[in-house]
Computed example of a mutant assay.
Amino acid sequence: MRSAATPESISTLYQNHHGWLFAWLRRKTGCSQQAADLAQDTFLRLLSTREQEAFRVPRAYLRTVAHGLMVDQIRRRALEQAYLEALALQPEPLAPSPEERLLVIEALLRIDSLLAALPDKTRSVFLLSQIDGLAYADIGERLGLSLRTVKRHMHTAFAQCLRALM
């Protein structure tokens, strides 16, 4: 049994499954270029994997990785689009430079990823506190949680934020 993906095993996997994966992605995305990029990214992920599943059931594994990459790409585009729409509403002198836009988009993606990693209830509590500005007691009342539980969720969320900063 392999302990890590070897160049030979990746090469064989690529030769045997790249065409199928590309066709599957092209059907899903409707774009040959996007499908080609996602297929390449999928195989790049395999270079550092230790998942034996990739070699036991390659198509299922490749489809799962490619699907995850596709979802990440869709989320990134949606986030970028929302940011660009908000920018379009700003007066011209307030519009940031392209470099500043990229930094903001990257920060938004990190925040989105951090929030997505939180459990649903913790994310809800955190957003009600930080975005809506609700007091912990009000959050507890709205979500049917005790004050102690709200504090525990906030502690979890802040700890996750601190880990992300380190």
Rank of each mutant, 00 (worst) to 15 (best):
E100A: 15
G140T: 10
R56W: 05
T122S: 11
A88Y: 06
R123H: 06
F22Y: 13
C161S: 07
R148D: 07
I111M: 14
R123I: 04
A66N: 07
A54I: 08
A95I: 13
L84F: 13
P98W: 00
L115P: 03
S32N: 12
R123N: 06
L145N: 08
L38S: 03
A164I: 01
M154G: 06
Y83V: 06
M166S: 12
G30W: 02
S48I: 01
L147A: 12
L108Q: 10
A107G: 08
L69E: 06
T6M: 06
G140S: 10
Q90T: 10
R123Q: 13
K151H: 13
I105R: 03
I105S: 04
R59I: 04
L165M: 11
R26S: 12
P96H: 06
L69M: 07
P58W: 05
Q130L: 09
E85G: 11
Q130E: 15
L103S: 02
G68P: 05
L102E: 07
E100Y: 00
E92K: 12
R148C: 02
F126C: 11
R152V: 05
H18R: 14
L89T: 13
L108V: 09
L89N: 09
R63V: 03
R26L: 04
A36F: 02
F55P: 01
E8W: 08
T6Y: 03
A54Q: 03
I10K: 01
P58T: 10
